[in-house]
Amino acid sequence: MIDNLVIPLLKILIVLNATLVGVTYMVLLERKVIAWAQSRLGPMRVGPYGILQPVADAIKLMIKEDITPVRADKWVFTAAPIISMVPALIVYAVIPFGDKARLFGRDITLYISDINVGLLYIVSVASVGVYGIILAGYSSNSKYPLLASLRASAQLISYEVAVTLTLVSVILVAGSLSMVQIVRAQESSHVWFLFVQPLAFAIFFIGGLAETNRAPFDMPEAEQELTGGFHTEYSGMRFALFFLAEYANMIVVSSVATTLFLGGWLRPFPNVAALGFLGFIPGWTWFLIKSFVFLYIFIWVRATLPRYRYDQLMRLGWKVLIPLAILNLVVTGIVKVLLL
């Protein structure tokens, strides 16, 4: 009873809440880091150094008037933010934050579930998220959101191909679809897959930027062109859901990248015994540090680069990334066969 029901439920509760808090603080982090990059201070008023800003933002968004445009498709308009939020959250079910922890005399695994097809689950759930954007654009009954949602869906579908192809080459190396097994494969082969699959990592990173609609691929919400993108007509909590979904997706992408390429919860150089003194740091800390570095790079990129144009983005996706990913996959396959 406890093992089958209570603990998983507790884990879900903790992960869900940690994610939501993490997401709101991600927003603050982004504002702060970008502000520093631009010789500003960022939020400073709410709490010391603005650390309570997310709370204020949340309150503001919740008490804002919730507007539905008169000629909108009401049901779809309401469903769209939910559709984009839910996939971003349920993906966390298979992300291994750590290996095992002993708590109250029990061995508790630091992941909600380790299903056999973990990676495929992430990809398929993430692919449903695109509906939120398409439907938001369609149901708003307004031109800018429509244009933005067309851009977004074309972008997501194209980059999904490249990203999934890189994941396949990682699967080939690891020999498993399970997230936990992939980390263990990195442990047993004594190397992070980042060094085995550098090209895959690069493509995954670029694709990850595109799939989360981040700069320089933030066309779907390019404020300067489309006034706000697919969520132009949204306000209040529904807007907040889109906003949170974007950041939740960023965290998902960085968690997946950490798991697949950076050795998940493993400490750096897990095979070097000389670094054994680092063993006192629990695995989940390494996981969080690695993901954080990733998120930081996401923000850094946004502060530095201009935005691609829509057609250039598609060209990059289809004519550069996908061929490279296929090439990488083929080479990986050949090497794998030769080595066996």
Binding site: S124, S127, V128, I134
Partner: peptide
């Protein structure tokens, strides 16, 4: 058949129907 389930979502729900919707 988890594999089939994931593929069903990925290919049908996440891929083909998006194009229908388009």
């Amino acid at each position: 058949a988890q594999f089939l389930a994931a593929i069903q979502v990925l290919v049908y729900a996440g891929g083909i129907v998006v194009l229908y919707l388009f």
